[in-house]
Design a protein around this nucleic acid. Sequence first.
DNA 1: GTGCGTGCAAATCTTTTGCAGGACA
DNA 2: TGTCCTGCAAAAGATTTGCACGCAC
Lengths: 146, 146
Amino acid sequence: MLAHTIDANKWLTALRENGCRITDVQEMLVHILAHTEIPLSAEQVWETARQIRPETGRATVYRMVEKLESLNLLRRIHGYQGCCSFLPTLPEPMMLFICLVCGRADYLDGQPLHDLIHQSERSSGHHITDSRLQLFGTCVACQQHS
Amino acid sequence: MLAHTIDANKWLTALRENGCRITDVQEMLVHILAHTEIPLSAEQVWETARQIRPETGRATVYRMVEKLESLNLLRRIHGYQGCCSFLPTLPEPMMLFICLVCGRADYLDGQPLHDLIHQSERSSGHHITDSRLQLFGTCVACQQHS
DNA sequence: GTGCGTGCAAATCTTTTGCAGGACA
DNA sequence: TGTCCTGCAAAAGATTTGCACGCAC
């Protein structure tokens, strides 16, 4: 289950439904972000955007990322170093694997995490309302390359 | 299993073994950080430190936090909002619960996460070398208060 | 006495905000 | 045509760095 399967058009529809006017800049940024397999920081998105459209402003990228995050289309990733990268959101509870070699993300089946949360609730007595799990290592492809 | 059970003297010993000179400032910062139950940002540590010793420099706190993190005594917490807070490190795999009401952290038994990781390795084929799990909700004490 | 730790200030880096002009509905 | 979007520049905030001085060893 990979990030690049996200449909950019759904994001544009969601933006329209939330009263946003769709501009060329927005379309470009949505395409960059909806299709990435690698967590991207606002700064990285800006760099990518400027290769397509050099006059793109930095603030525009920050504002777009913020809006997509508030619409729950984009999710902040708390990476191995640094916490300012983003990936498309997938259903909760999300189990995210990030390859430390190629940087690609893979969304794993969340059922084991779901079970773990219920088990932990019972054993600890805490009421758990949200979770964040990230796994790091070497992905299948990168294991074969080495 | 709570953070305040961490022994500050072990941290001071570790610092000495890594060639650090122990000063009053260092002792104060170690005591603040080793005993906290609530994730603290460098800025918060600085505020606390200045209440004890007003002339404490901000840069000193940042350098101390960085050193403790590099010695794996302190661990960066990717909180509900913001990712610049720190807690004492506990053995891996660490399952961390943070109460959204009182802010306190509780370290849970890591075995379920250990099992989850092995299961995910088998089903996905990825080689998992590190993990980060944080659970959020209402702790036992805060449930009773409400 | 030597060199690391410290405080201060400046520099750097990231992110946010204000504003004037232009584009979308 | 009104409002939202955009780019620029400035501001704000967080973190790092340079340097002179003092303290631990």
